[in-house]
Amino acid sequence: MGMKTTSAYRFGVGAALATAFVLAWVIGAVGLVGIEGDPFDLIYAGVLAVGVIGAMIARLRPLGMARALFATALAQASVAVIALIAGKHHVEVSSVLEILGSNAFFVTLWVGSALLFKAAAREQRPG
């Protein structure tokens, strides 16, 4: 039996893919924490891995995707905490506000996508 995709589901997919693309692009272009090319930025591959593995576990079902993207948002927030613990805010180009702000931006996008999937799951339920 095929899954009926709703507009909330399609927007959720679009938001998740766009967020992943922008995160990868920013990391590749200028880096998110520290100076350009800082090896610390490789930790963001873990954030993307949480999303991909979560989507595989969810088998792309809306409620599972919502959970996977909430987990991805948590992973993104964890990177900000790890960066601050590692002292990355002492680098000339990365203040505490910049680290928290840039990561909060991506956390917000992941959560937005998760909420779209949650809405799609509600739309699938009868009644």
Rank of each mutant, 00 (worst) to 15 (best):
V13W: 10
G14T: 10
G14V: 08
A15D: 07
A18K: 04
A18V: 04
A18F: 14
T19I: 02
A20L: 11
A20Q: 09
F21T: 06
V22N: 12
A24S: 13
A24K: 08
W25K: 13
G28H: 10
A29I: 09
A29T: 14
A29H: 08
V30C: 03
L32H: 10
L32W: 13
V33N: 02
G34F: 03
G34T: 08
E36R: 15
G37Q: 05
G37D: 06
D38C: 02
D38E: 10
D41N: 15
A45M: 13
A45R: 10
A45S: 10
A45F: 03
A45H: 06
A45N: 07
A45W: 07
G46Q: 12
V47E: 00
V47Q: 04
V47I: 01
A49P: 00
V50M: 12
V50S: 08
V50I: 15
V50F: 02
V52I: 15
V52K: 11
I53F: 00
G54W: 07
M56D: 12
M56R: 14
M56T: 10
I57Y: 14
A58F: 03
A58S: 07
R59H: 12
R59M: 09
R59F: 06
L60C: 01
R61H: 05
P62I: 12
L63I: 05
L63A: 06
G64F: 04
M65A: 01
M65Y: 02
M65T: 03
R67E: 06
A68I: 10
L69H: 14
L69I: 11
